[in-house]
Design a protein around this nucleic acid. Sequence first.
DNA 1: CCAAATTATGACACCGATGTCATGACACCG
DNA 2: CGGTGTCATGACATCGGTGTCATAATTTGG
Lengths: 362, 362
Amino acid sequence: MSTIYDVARRAGVSPKTVSRVLNSDGPVGEKTREAVEAAMRELGYVRSNAARMMRAQKSGIIGLITGAISTKNQPSTQQGLPDLYIVQGIQRALESSGMTVMIADTAGRNDRVPHLIDTFLSHRVEGLIYVAEYHQEVKLPRLPDDTPIVLANCFDARRTPAVVPDDRRLQRDLVRRLIVAGHRRIAYLSLRPDMAAGRLRPLGYRNALEEAGLTPDPALLQHVDFDQPEIGPQLLWDTIDRMLHLDQPPTVLCCGNDQMAMMVYGILRSMGRRMPDEISVAGFDNYRAIAETLYPPLTTVDLPYNAIGARAGERLMQLISGVGRDDHSPVLVAGPVHWRGSVTELRPENVISFKTLREEKQ
Amino acid sequence: MSTIYDVARRAGVSPKTVSRVLNSDGPVGEKTREAVEAAMRELGYVRSNAARMMRAQKSGIIGLITGAISTKNQPSTQQGLPDLYIVQGIQRALESSGMTVMIADTAGRNDRVPHLIDTFLSHRVEGLIYVAEYHQEVKLPRLPDDTPIVLANCFDARRTPAVVPDDRRLQRDLVRRLIVAGHRRIAYLSLRPDMAAGRLRPLGYRNALEEAGLTPDPALLQHVDFDQPEIGPQLLWDTIDRMLHLDQPPTVLCCGNDQMAMMVYGILRSMGRRMPDEISVAGFDNYRAIAETLYPPLTTVDLPYNAIGARAGERLMQLISGVGRDDHSPVLVAGPVHWRGSVTELRPENVISFKTLREEKQ
DNA sequence: CCAAATTATGACACCGATGTCATGACACCG
DNA sequence: CGGTGTCATGACATCGGTGTCATAATTTGG
């Protein structure tokens, strides 16, 4: 591959002049510039980042660590593929700043993280982003120097800058909307409480009920470890069966995520229940491959992984430029409710007008 | 960040000696080595790849271009997220060779590809991999120099080294298995024929039937553009309705992919058909979030995106080391049939034993 | 015990781009 | 017309490792 020296020789100028043309640095004569540009074209010259990085002491590289990429085909895979969307969002956000993204995955082994960080540091990355596959607390080794790092879809005890989904608010918004549609008996099938989503979403559900003056009924709230290999569907079946046989059965089943909702679809239909007339179903995530393809399409709330990535990228760029280095508050990201065919709007006379709620939503 | 000069000064040796310790190059005295290692630890030294790359003229970087990462939230999103799995496979394959992966996405705009390639070249990547979101033909700008490139999940007219799924064989294997299970009236709901999968999979379906001495019935083969926004589900409904009212209706519906199968589940149940007793359903892809969570779990065939990535990575490493530079034959990748609850095994007396088929499958 | 081989270490150049400073050629102004 | 600015360009050093060669110290062998 050719260098500025090759270009300089061919154009009959000094290397420094070529450099000036490349960077529009100092003044360069019209004829000289043309000669240099011609030489560059003819040689197919591409400037070496390594050399330029050495002088500039800037790499223009951001390191991305994602455990997600590799834990996906583990036994218990319950989530969608949020990380891809997050990575996409990061790329979008970093694109304008001219950064190049270097990516590495832990291959499902957290003990490899220090090694990956070392590799990134040897490339002198200007910042790091750690992407988790689902909202959770993580523990990262302390970075040896002052390279900024942002956590996406996770947080840690050291209060490292983080961007996470606002699970509580998202669930609250969805349940609010269900209430606006006239539903009063709203069941909630929650994810395992050892995941952040399994704690925060039920909280949002409760908030929405209380706001509306409804008393949460313990009989309508149940944790279901639905993605357990064998017993998951059975657990779900039993729970739904029990709820539907209550004196006052729910009119809508709010599911911990879209995948659970998909399974609920199959179960309800096997039970001979018609959707959404007899019983409505709502999801969480707006996992589009599922929500839009299910029949009927699934009402759910958008967990905007793209935006999480974008926010993380922006936050990192700020940190790199020295802004908000001591701001430790996490960035919460929310998205809109997607109202589709899986939930009935109950008869108007049952629907109370949540004026304040609606206004707030705007 | 500290340099070997800092380390050398601290350890009271020359920079070259530090370099020797780093690379286990020449002989180094025991005491000297320890002093150097101590100094490195104390300073938190991390070697600069930029500098070393300059001398070595090797970057240790592989460039990854994926259009997929960004076209996902386009209107017509029908596939899963194969690219993530492909990327994962690539990383796995490259990990052992100590390569670092740099990733860039086209943000859905193919006109950005040349720019991305330039960026990669400026980093002096040792190879490139282009990952497509679904099996298709692509057209890439010619690379200006001899940097090797491999196409993953796509191919081009220049016969650039490529790794693609063996759609025909996968579909044939699945249909074979259906035949072994006793099915004779096998319907095929195909994807749009403008996608490679929409042409190759029906071909495999046909192959399997003919092998078994069954005559393909045109009434049982239908292209369905199921992921069209509004009319998709309707088209699918009509097609299924028509097929189920044939004189000899199908016993199993073979779907172009798992997502279509998911929609078919909903439709069949709305029609009041019980699965799998009355009618069986099979998918394609083994999109696990869907196939394993559907109720009943979906029989499908594994399109091993992971393996595609891994093969692509391996192929690239070969090319880099100069092996098989003029081998233009594409690598075909297949995976196993996953037999789950969505397809009935018909009564034994109906089941002919496909001895040869079974043996071949092993 | 001395020559030859081996071990341990350092001086120096180089990879390719760019920052600093110098130099020569003009143009402009009083 | 001489001094001062601006323009256009180049010489040279530098970034941080590593290859080459030289040199000093030590061991080995005859």
